[in-house]
């Protein structure tokens, strides 16, 4: 799925969270880099239809959420920055609940849960309550939740924040594989430089404005810097 963000602005009272953002996300791995408070979560709230767009438009394969909500929601898998799991339910109950919200048949739901937990190395946690899981495991369950209905688009808002290296690498590799091998459109929002590789399409968000967008290596060449840290320094001084 192609997502076309067209001139989106969003304010909270007098605070401008997003200022005239235009960005096209094509199938594959796309990174949205920005510090906390840059507007990444605001953009996610608009992309997922949880908040109304103040100005501008977001098109999913040419349609807005208002025009084609059911079909767009079916194709979206989202990991929010804040946990969305029900801590009083088990891993299985949480995943089955989400699967039912997407209309998955019970037998399909069971097989998807089993496959995803195997892939995310969580199969021994099937009947564990979320409140008894550590942060890394909870985040993996979040990822399993967002993948259960096999979406064609993944929106991941800081999916690896606060995780150990093993969990971080696992989540990154699972998502990266989906983007590269299956052509899933991924928007990976992060403030962590080490999650950006030179071949990734990169959009940089600063104070609600999109200050750069291109493949990371092209941006390094354009600004005549050798790594993302230096690129960041150049952009933050310029803006």
């Amino acid at each position: 799925m192609e997502i076309d963000i067209q001139g989106v602005s969003h304010t909270y009272g007098k605070v401008t969270a997003l200022d005239d953002i235009s960005l096209t996300l094509k199938p594959g791995f796309n990174i949205l880099l920005g510090p906390n408070g840059a507007g990444k979560s605001s953009l996610f709230a608009l992309l997922t239809g949880l908040q109304r767009i103040g100005h501008g438009n977001i098109l999913f394969n040419g349609s807005t959420i208002t025009q084609n909500r059911a079909s767009i929601m079916k194709s979206l898998g989202v990991v929010f920055q804040q946990s969305t799991l029900d801590i009083d339910l088990t891993v299985k109950q949480n995943l089955a609940y989400f699967a039912s919200l997407h209309g998955l048949a019970p037998e399909k739901s069971i097989s998807r849960i089993s496959d995803l937990l195997n892939e995310l190395d969580l199969s021994d946690r099937l009947n564990t309550k979320i409140r008894n899981l550590n942060g890394g495991h909870r985040r993996r369950v979040e990822l399993a939740r967002c993948l259960i209905h096999q979406p064609s688009t993944l929106l991941l808002d800081e999916p690896t924040v606060g995780l150990d290296i093993a969990s971080r690498q696992l989540i990154h590799s699972v998502v990266h594989d989906l983007a590269v091998k299956q052509g899933v459109t991924v928007l990976w929002a992060t403030h962590l430089f080490e999650e950006v590789s030179p071949t990734d399409p990169l959009a940089i968000l600063l104070n609600g404005r999109l200050v750069e967008r291109d493949v990371c290596s092209a941006l390094l060449t354009k600004h005549q810097v050798s790594d993302i840290h230096q690129l960041w320094d150049v952009l933050t001084h310029a803006n």
């Binding site: 969003h10 408070g37 949880l50 908040q51 109304r52 430089f193």
Partner: peptide, 17 residues
């Protein structure tokens, strides 16, 4: 609807943007 202000996690990691 437009939500109340809130920008999520404010903490910045060492290796972060």
């Amino acid at each position: 609807k437009p939500a109340a202000a809130g920008f999520g996690n404010k903490s910045l990691g060492k290796n972060s943007a």
